[in-house]
């Protein structure tokens, strides 16, 4: 992991979209007046005829994307997660997911790491909402490499996808040649003292915790679950069998989200105790991202504490 090179996944998204636009003429991109924040402006500049700024009208944006998809286009629709999954939920459900249309919803600024904008803009329920919707694939990449792979990969299959992206600049974890597969988690390390399941911008925190624990004689593994739906049941069960302690960490509410998804797998297949770190049934608040992850207890120190050093 290159700790010095930090990139927010929204930036990687913008760059990947630009590349994808060169390769595939059917890609169209929609935004709702946030293209400089979601980074779709990179695509817009290069392909103005395939970029549609829908204005501050997220519901209309999702519906228009659905219309494009019925005609064989591959729309990538972007706005902040709070608007994509929240404000436009019914459009995502009824105009995209129910007809199983090929719309890629790329939601940036997910979780409390939005920072200073505070609670109204910090989406903490989207994993729960989106994974409950039939036909929807839910992915949450953790770094530059994984994001660039995912953005391209989802263009290759037909069907709606919710991509959860972050504003928070995080280290580049993977080498450019790393192989990924939708629905298959990535195991980092082989420790048997514990497993830290993480997704999105929490994977870097988990890896930092793993390194600290290692220096203190505890050997844990990190499992990067980039695909939250369909979730890698095999990997979760394997880790529950092989390791003593199980922790999940998410930049999301602990109700209905990532930890809940893991708990569902454990309950039905390999009952085990799971400690879920996440935002505990409360709204976010203003502050710097680094301060907020500490405040809400989803930072490296809180993860380390779970192992009673």
């Amino acid at each position: 992991m290159d700790m010095d090179k930090k990139i927010a996944t929204r930036q990687s998204y913008g760059e990947a979209l630009l590349e994808l636009g060169k390769e595939n003429k059917d890609i169209v991109v929609l935004d709702a007046d946030l293209s400089s924040a979601t980074k779709t402006n990179l695509f817009a500049k290069e392909f103005p005829n395939r970029f549609f700024d829908m204005g501050i009208a997220e519901q209309d944006m999702i519906g228009t994307a659905a219309g494009f998809a019925t005609c064989g286009k591959i729309p990538y629709a972007s706005t902040f997660a709070v608007f994509a999954a929240g404000r436009a939920y019914d459009q995502v459900r009824n105009s995209v997911a129910y007809p199983n249309l090929n719309v890629k919803i790329c939601a940036t600024h997910a979780g409390i790491t939005v920072g200073e904008d505070g609670a109204t803009h910090q989406m903490l329920e989207d994993i729960g909402m989106m994974r409950a919707v039939p036909n929807m694939t839910v992915v949450c990449p953790c770094d530059d490499t994984e994001t660039k792979w995912i953005i391209k990969e989802i263009s290759k299959f037909n069907g709606p996808v919710y991509v959860r992206l972050s504003r928070y600049a995080t280290p580049v974890i993977y080498e450019p040649n790393q192989k990924f597969k939708i629905g298959k988690a990535v195991q980092i390390g082989k420790g048997t003292d514990g497993t830290i399941f993480a997704t999105g911008d929490m994977v870097a925190e988990a890896i930092k915790a793993k390194d600290i624990l290692e220096k203190n004689g505890k050997f844990v593994r990190v499992v990067d679950i980039h695909t939250i739906k369909p979730i890698d049941e095999e990997m979760i069960v394997k880790c529950a069998k092989e390791t003593e302690k199980l922790i999940s960490v998410e930049n999301h509410s602990i109700i209905g989200g990532f930890g809940s998804a893991i708990a569902e797998v454990l309950t039905e297949n390999q009952p085990a105790k799971l400690t879920r770190l996440g935002v505990k049934d409360t709204f976010g608040k203003s502050g710097k991202a680094d301060e907020l992850i500490k405040y809400f207890g989803i930072d490296v120190e809180t993860i380390v504490k779970c192992f009673n050093l």
Partner: peptide
């Protein structure tokens, strides 16, 4: 909204 997407296509 959907009809707009179709007409744009």
């Amino acid at each position: 909204s959907v009809a707009n997407g179709m007409a744009l296509s």
